[in-house]
Simulated assay, not measured.
Amino acid sequence: MTDAPLPYLIRGSGPGLLLAHGAGGGAVSNWTPILDGLAEHFTVVAPDYPGSGDSPRATEPLQLESLADDLVATAVAAGLDEFAIAGYSLGTAVATTAAVRHPDRVRRLALIAGLTHADPWLSQAIRTWQVLFDGDPVPLGHFSLLMAASPDALAEGVTDELAATVGNSLAPGAPEQFDLVSRVDIRPLLPRVTAPTLVLATGQDSLTQPHFSRALAEGIPDAKLVELAAGHNVFIEAGPELLAALLEFLPEPA
C-alpha cells in the first residue's frame, strides 16, 4: 500500500475530521454511536482498513506507516486538504503516525483508548484473539467482551447468545489488524507530534490500560489528558461524554 485511498464513508459538513478505527472494528462498527453528533459540526471521513467494511483483506502484513499514509490519502481524495484526526485504539497509533508524517495536513489530534506499544499484557491478548478467531464465535465473543467491557458493564453477566453476536461481528481482517497491533511502537514518534493533542484515557480499560494514555500525554508536547469512566468499549459505555470531550477540543479557536 502506498498512498492509496481506502473505502470510506463521509458525513456532515464543516471543517475536516478524519477518523481512524480500532483493530477488528470498522468505520461503522466503532464510530456509529457518535458519528451523527460529529457530523453536525464537521465533514467526517471515516475509512475502513483492509479487511474492514468494504475494504478487501490485505495479502501482506499491514505496515503502520503505509496505513497512515493511506488514511491521509483517503481524506485528500474525499476533498479535505487539512483536517483533525481522531483515532481509537490501534487508530491512535495510525493517527499519531499520520500527524508526524503529514504535519502540513493534520491540524489537531485526538487519541481515544490509545496505546504506545504492545506490552506483554496486550501481546498476550492479541495471541489469544488470533487463536480463537477461526473457531467457535462464542468463546471468541466472551474473550472480546472480557477485554472490551468495563467491570461495571459485565456486572449482569454475558449470555452465550450475546457472545456469539460479538464474536461474529469482528471484521474479517481482524487477524492482520491484530498482527499490526503486536508490532506497533510509536514511542519514538511522540516528541515529534506538533499538532495540539487531546488524549482520552479509558479509566476502566482492561485492554489498552490507562498507563498507555498517560505515556501518550507525557510524550506528546503539551498534550491534554482527560479520563473517561469506561472500558475499551467507550463508544457504548460513555458515548455522550466522549462526544462532548471531542466537540470541546477539536474546533480550532476562531
Rank of each mutant, 00 (worst) to 15 (best):
W129G: 00
L247F: 08
P210F: 09
G231T: 11
A39N: 05
D3V: 00
L247H: 04
Y8M: 04
W129K: 05
G14I: 14
P61W: 03
L207T: 13
S89N: 05
G87V: 12
P191A: 06
R192T: 14
S89Y: 03
A164D: 14
G135R: 15
V138L: 12
F178R: 01
L38A: 03
T128V: 11
T2R: 15
L200C: 03
A148P: 02
E65W: 00
H117T: 14
Q209P: 04
E161M: 00
A244L: 01
V158W: 10
T59K: 13
D134H: 13
I220R: 00
S144H: 14
R57K: 12
L246S: 10
V94F: 07
Y88R: 05
P240Q: 08
S52C: 15
V45H: 04
A215D: 09
L140Q: 13
V234K: 00
T2M: 13
S55R: 00
V158N: 10
D119C: 08
F178Y: 15
A201F: 05
M1V: 13
R187C: 12
R101E: 07
A78Y: 10
L200S: 04
G114M: 10
A215M: 14
F143L: 09
E252A: 10
S213Y: 03
Q177K: 06
Q209V: 14
D3P: 00
V44Q: 05
S144W: 07
L9P: 00
A20E: 10
A125C: 14
S13P: 07
S66N: 09
G53D: 11
L9D: 13
N233L: 15
S52W: 03
A217R: 01
A46D: 05
R183S: 14
Q63R: 15
G219S: 04
A164T: 01
A77N: 05
R11P: 02
E248L: 06
P175I: 12
A155R: 15
P151A: 07
H102M: 08
L198R: 01
V181F: 02
T208S: 14
R11T: 13
A195L: 06
